[in-house]
Structures are given as C-alpha cells and as structure tokens.
Simulated assay, not measured.
Amino acid sequence: MADVALQSGVVASEEAADRIKALRRFRFNDALFHFLTRTAAIAVLVILAGVIFALIHGSLPAFQAFGLEFFYTQSWNPVTERFGALAPIYGTIMTSLIAMIIAVPVGIGIAIFLTELCPPILKRPIGIAVELLAGIPSIIYGIWGLFVFAPFLQQTVQPALIAMFGPIPVLNSIFAGPPYGIGVLTAGLILAIMVLPFITSISRDVFETVPPVLKEAAYGVGCTTWEVVRHVVLPFTRVGVIGGIMLGLGRALGETMAVTFVIGNAHKISASIIAPGTTISASIANEFTEAVGDIYTSSLIALGLILFIITFFVLAVARYMLLRLENQAGR
C-alpha cells in the first residue's frame, strides 16, 4: 500500500510539473504575441510619422519661396521657377467628383441587382466579372482609355454633349471647346470604372448581411422590392455602404497612371470638363524624374503633401459620418 501511495504521489507531482510548464509556455507565447502585435501597431505610427515628416521637410523650400500663393495660383513654369498648385488640386477634385457621381449609383444599383433581383444562374458570373475589374492594373486602364475610350468619346460622346448643351447658358461653358477625346471628363469616366468594383463588392457584401426575416416581414406586409431596398436594406447597411464609397473615393483621389494617360496633363484650369487638365498624382508622376533644382523638386513634394492632406481630410470626414450614423443607430 505504501508503494502504491508513493507511486500515486510521484505521478501527481509529475502532472503538476507538466501543468506548470504548460502554463509557463502559454504565458510566454501570450507575452510574445502581445509584443509582436504592439510592435506592428507602433511601426505603423512610426512609418506614418516618417512619411509626414519627409513630406513637410521636402516641401519647406517651396512654401518658403511662394507662401500661401502656392495654393491659389495655377502658374507652373519650370523655366522661371514659378509654381502653383491650384490646377492640380482642381483637377484632382473634379476627376474624383465625376467618378463618384457616376460610380456610386451604378455600383449600388449593381449590388442591389445581385442581392435582390438577379437570377441565381447569373449571380456568380456577374459577381466574378465585377471582382475581375478590381484586379486589372491601372496602367491597362490607362492604355485602354488612351487608345480605345478617348477616340470613342472624341468621335461620338463629346460632340453630342457639345451640341446638346450648347444652347443652355451655364452648361454650355461646362461642355465647351473642341472634342479632344482626352481631358478631365475622360479621366473621371476612367476613374469611375476603376472604383466601381470596390463600391459594388462592399455594397453587395453588406447587403447580404441583412437578416432575411426583416425583408420577409416587409414583403409580408405588401412592400415592393424598391420599398424593401429603400426602407430595410439601405438603412440597415448604410454604415458599410458609406465605408465602401469612401474607399472608392480614396482610390480615385490617389490614382496616377490611368489618369496620366487620358487627362492631357495641362497645368491650367478650364471651366469645361472636356478640356485637358492635370491632377496632383499625374503631375508628380510626369515631372518628378525631370525635376531640376531644389524649388522644382520641393514644389512636387508639396503637391504630395497637399494630396496627403486632402486624403486625410476625406477619411476624417468619413469616420465622423460613420460615427454619427452608429450613434443614431444606437439611439
């Protein structure tokens, strides 16, 4: 009996030792995981701070040379070293605005069709086709826009717009000028095609999260499909839809290669959206390798800083809107 008790005690002590080792191993793994995740989070902040510091430091010569005039003048002359950012800022905002005006209703409409109206046999092919659009490189969009889309607009769409809005007092200045094919409108249309998959995919995914019981109850009381979408689906998923729209807007603001091919790269502001223009990213991509002198290089870096500020402002407004919506939903 004594031997049995001794053996039982030895086994118990070995099990206790194994448990202690396991607990120590788990504690070490948790500490290591905590350290790695915290390091990754801090690294993001450090990288962001480094980018901001590099942009501010690089743009100081331009701001010291031109001051606030850099923001509201459109002169861009590397020979005389006179630079202004107004034309690229205007082009960036206009092309993104045109893209969102077109892409938001079309993208949400496609998402509604896929989730509410599409026959099952077509849902998967259309969904895959939309997702494939997001995987096409931007330079392919640019080449296609320059050699296929721009000539089509020059020969058909732009002459029709000029003839249609010519007699209307305000719109005739917006759609004025010869049909070049390339220009702000063309760049906006290309951006609309590029951001469409992001808005559609995110909207479709959040629409599918709506509980079926809510839609079935709405149909049960006699609501039409439009009424279900308007009063049930969209209010339930508005936070996700706005997030997808802001993601597409961020892509449109920073797009470079596709816009560079089709916008015309003219540093001037025109009332007509058919006329050539430029954007911040297109100006940097076209001229940074050819920039000679500190002021020229600093002006391009200052454009990058302005684009960073615009993007940060847009994302901040988006976060504020989402927070307001979440608070309203909580009430």
Rank of each mutant, 00 (worst) to 15 (best):
V210F: 10
R319V: 13
I47W: 07
I52Q: 04
Q64W: 09
T289I: 04
G50A: 01
P179I: 00
R204F: 05
S138G: 10
L23Q: 14
I102E: 07
I202E: 09
Y320K: 13
D18L: 14
V79R: 14
A163H: 08
T297L: 14
S8N: 14
V314P: 07
Y141L: 01
P178D: 13
I56Q: 00
A22C: 11
I202V: 15
S299E: 08
T289Y: 10
P137F: 07
I128L: 15
R324V: 14
V4Y: 12
I101N: 01
R19K: 12
R19P: 00
K215C: 05
T237E: 09
R251L: 04
N172Y: 04
A160M: 13
T297V: 12
G330H: 06
I93C: 03
F207K: 01
V104Y: 07
E208G: 13
G177M: 02
I112F: 07
A49N: 03
P169D: 00
A43M: 13
S138R: 02
R319W: 04
G177A: 05
S272T: 01
M321S: 13
Q154C: 01
M321V: 15
G50L: 00
S283W: 04
H57Y: 14
P125K: 05
I102K: 01
P61Q: 05
L122W: 08
P212C: 09
P88A: 11
L249H: 05
I126L: 15
F66S: 05
E116P: 00
I112P: 03
E131W: 08
I52M: 09
I162E: 04
L32P: 03
A192W: 03
V213M: 13
N172T: 14
G58Y: 10
G9A: 15
T186H: 01
A129Q: 01
S201R: 14
V228D: 11
G58P: 06
F312S: 03
M94Y: 06
C223N: 12
A291F: 07
F147N: 10
A103L: 09
G188H: 04
R19I: 01
A163D: 14
Y141V: 00
E116Y: 00
G145T: 02
A31K: 14
A134F: 06
A85H: 10
A316H: 02
L214P: 03
A285V: 06
T225H: 09
I174R: 09
Q74G: 13
V10D: 12
T311C: 07
F113A: 05
I121L: 12
G142K: 03
I199M: 00
L300S: 07
Y141W: 05
F33Y: 11
I284C: 10
V44L: 03
E287T: 05
F28P: 06
C223T: 12
Y320W: 14
I93W: 03
S13T: 12
P61A: 02
E116Q: 14
I301G: 00
K123G: 00
I280F: 00
E287G: 06
I269V: 13
A271K: 13
A217L: 07
I143V: 15
R204C: 02
A302C: 02
S138N: 06
S203I: 11
V4W: 11
